[in-house]
């Protein structure tokens, strides 16, 4: 099996793993009990998905690395998640906008993966999309409620949209790994997701009385290729601490 496929699976797994970890940082301090539970449950779904993708990546790689080795023993430059998901939680507005931008993309991406020629990929995607549909419904709903909420919540939501926008462009950039996945019939073309994503996001933001930034704005990129913002290194420092300090620890 080609390295490209392993890389492709690592990207899917890393997106789920890193966002899951970010959301878990809210556990016990959400703004309301219901929100706390929702973020923890979303984090749990994503963690389950991450395990499925990373386990498969480890099997195909066939280098003796299981899901745990891949999650806890890789360095920042070896992670290939989107920059968006590693962005710090910030305020609840930042967290919800990040979630909404990602969910809308994730849902489209999984639709593509459900049609994968690789049965295992299609199976994981078919499982995950049911969970992600629920995530998207919830984050869309909250974006509308907080955007079209009080003057303060609207201001915070607009700021979050404007600040996170620059991390969305990367979701629709294709590189050699993506092209190979399309050729092999196992993956989707990220470029093709851009229009449906924009159209959905435009509708929800408009309902939320929020301005959508220009589609041709400057976009950050590099996460998929391992070039991250410094936020990821701090996240990994915490997430990997135990396995780094006590390699192979189990309980």
């Amino acid at each position: 099996m080609s390295n490209d496929t392993v890389q492709y699976l690592l990207r899917l797994g890393d997106n789920a793993l890193i966002l899951s970890h970010r959301l878990s940082e809210w556990c016990g301090k959400g703004p309301a009990l219901e929100e706390d539970m929702a973020l923890a449950n979303t984090a749990l779904d994503l963690l389950g998905q991450a395990r499925l993708w990373l386990s498969y990546a480890g099997e195909l790689e066939d280098a003796g690395r299981d899901e745990d080795a891949l999650a806890y023993r890789r360095n920042d430059r070896q992670f290939c998640n989107l920059l968006l998901v590693e962005r710090p939680n910030g305020s609840y507005a930042d967290t919800m906008v990040r979630q909404f931008f990602f969910d809308a993309w994730h849902h489209l991406a999984l639709q593509g993966l459900c049609r994968s020629a690789d049965e295992r990929i299609a199976g994981i995607a078919a499982k995950a999309i049911k969970e992600v549909e629920y995530h998207l419904r919830r984050s869309s709903d909250l974006v509308v409620r907080l955007g079209d909420g009080t003057a303060q919540s609207q201001k915070m939501m607009q700021r979050a949209v404007d600040e996170l926008w620059t991390y969305t462009g990367e979701m629709f950039e294709s590189d050699g790994v993506d092209e190979q996945a399309v050729v092999a019939g196992i993956g989707f073309d990220p470029v093709a997701l851009r229009e449906p994503w924009l159209s959905y996001v435009r509708e929800v933001l408009s309902e939320a009385t929020l301005r959508i930034p220009p589609a041709d704005a400057f976009m950050q990129k590099g996460g998929k290729q391992g070039r991250h913002t410094e936020a990821l290194s701090y996240l990994l420092g915490e997430m990997q601490y135990l396995q780094r300090a006590y390699p192979g620890a189990q309980w």
């Binding site: 849902h107 999984l110 639709q111 459900c114 999309i129 049911k130 549909e133 998207l136 419904r137 919830r138 869309s140 709903d141 509308v144 409620r145 959905y200 509708e203 929800v204 309902e207």
Partner: peptide, 14 residues
Amino acid sequence: EHVVDLSRIRRQGG
């Protein structure tokens, strides 16, 4: 179908 229906999201819990 795995399509998120916007009308269900508008100002309700979905």
